[in-house]
């Protein structure tokens, strides 16, 4: 299963302080997200499966306790609300 961030025109992303706001145009829902969600969305500008995404995030961030199962769960949540697409 590969994932990709929703098309640019589908989302409006506004980073604030610790949190980031993501407006999902199709549903009209405002998502208030904390790390690592903004980083996941950024990394998924190219289609990746969960393992490749974890590798990519590990390059950029110091992931002490990287957990593939937790990342897969986050991806499923993000896909369910429409912020990422399953390919």
């Amino acid at each position: 299963m590969r994932y990709k961030v929703a098309p640019r025109e589908a989302l409006r992303v506004v980073p604030l302080d610790a949190l980031t706001l993501v407006y999902h145009r199709a549903s009209g829902i405002t998502h208030i997200v904390d790390a690592p969600v903004p980083e996941i969305l950024e990394a998924l500008t190219e289609p990746l499966d969960a393992d490749d995404l974890l590798a990519k995030l590990s390059e950029t961030f110091d992931l002490a306790d990287a957990d593939p199962a937790a990342l897969a769960a986050r991806l499923d949540e993000l896909a369910a609300v429409g912020l990422v697409e399953r390919l």
Binding site: R12, V14, L21, Y23, G28, I32
Partner: peptide, 23 residues
């Protein structure tokens, strides 16, 4: 700002109705 945002969405009766204009 993030806490202010959350508090003000709670203090608005038409935030959802205004959709992206409200955001």
């Amino acid at each position: 700002p993030s806490e202010t945002f959350v508090r003000l969405t709670q203090a608005s009766t038409n935030y959802v109705a205004l959709a992206e204009r409200g955001f």
